[in-house]
């Protein structure tokens, strides 16, 4: 633990005692002045943009409404991950079954509706939900940081006497696991839906099974999937707990505890089932 006797930011190294120690005095003081200016500039940038962000979130709906929007979009995502996982598992039934499933997704609803109508309706819904989820998350983050603000330069201490188990770490990592999931989803779509390089390996429209196997053969991509599934397990576990809190369901202890358990089961279940696929491809069980 460091202890600083000066207010504000942690003391910067005294330039005369660093490698600059041998430079002429005028240059040294010029460098110091430049240092101070740069520090001042950063402080101004940081404080104005925070002020602007706080202002922007003031115009947004009250926190309980933002939380309900998070809960609605998050529940939609969670439901989707379960359905999507069930679809993914058809990879174990072989090329034909999997390609047939992919074709079904593209054509479902036809001939009543034009081909891909439902697919696009679904895509637009997911896009809107993503925009909602991310915007509300950003606004809530700004509000949280504003309310928990500390004197400049004073970081939060690691709390003494508090041991954090993995689920406790997951709780505190909604923002980072969310960002991982967002980036992963972008990669996933570029890879297997669009087939854009370098995200995709060799990509043939309609050959879903082969595209998947070729993509997951790449060790880096397989590793990315495993990392993303860890993030998914963490995000879903705390996500469902949060949904209970944000919808008022968790005023009942039994409901709260069930939702917490359901979140952990759903999160790890979906993550493990999905993670088995890159592993199976790497082990050449699926080829």
């Amino acid at each position: 633990m460091t202890i600083s006797d000066s207010p504000g930011a942690p003391a910067r190294p005294d330039s005369s005692t660093t490698s600059r120690g041998t430079v002429p005095a005028t240059l040294d003081s010029a460098l110091r002045a430049a240092d101070r200016l740069r520090a001042r500039a950063w402080e101004t940038v940081a404080s104005t943009s925070v002020d602007a962000m706080v202002k922007a979130t003031e115009k947004m709906p009250p926190t309980p409404q933002l939380k309900l929007a998070m809960a609605a979009s998050g529940t939609l995502f969670s439901g989707f991950t379960v359905v999507h996982m069930l679809g993914n598992l058809q990879v174990y039934q072989g090329r034909e079954a999997f390609d047939g499933y992919a074709r079904f997704l593209r054509t479902v609803g036809s001939p009543v509706l034009p081909e891909k109508t439902l697919l696009w309706a679904f895509r637009v819904t997911m896009l809107a939900a993503t925009a909602t989820h991310v915007t509300c998350a950003a606004a809530l983050t700004v509000r949280a940081q504003q309310a928990a603000s500390r004197p400049r330069g004073q970081k939060r201490l690691r709390p003494r006497g508090r041991r954090r188990r993995p689920w406790d770490v997951a709780k505190r990592s909604m923002r980072s696991t969310g960002v991982v999931l967002g980036l992963f989803t972008a990669h996933h779509i570029a890879d297997l839906t669009v087939g854009a390089r370098p995200a995709a390996a060799e990509h043939v429209q309609g050959a879903a099974y082969d595209n998947l196997v070729r993509s997951l053969r790449r060790p880096a991509v397989a590793a990315l999937y495993l990392a993303a599934m860890t993030a998914l397990a963490a995000h879903t576990a705390q996500g469902l707990t949060q949904v209970g809190n944000d919808t008022g369901l968790s005023t009942d202890r039994a409901v709260r505890e069930k939702l917490e358990l359901a979140g952990r089961l759903a999160g790890t279940g979906v993550a493990l089932a999905n993670a088995s696929i890159p592993l199976a491809v790497q082990l050449r069980i699926v080829r």
């Binding site: 309980p64 944000d246 919808t247 005023t251 709260r256």
Partner: peptide, 21 residues
């Protein structure tokens, strides 16, 4: 963990319950 009255997590959710109500 810190509340001297040992108040439970369930109380947190009363905010959303009343809001929705």
């Amino acid at each position: 963990e810190v509340c001297p009255a040992g108040l439970p997590l369930e109380n947190l959710s009363a905010v959303a319950r009343e809001y929705l109500r």
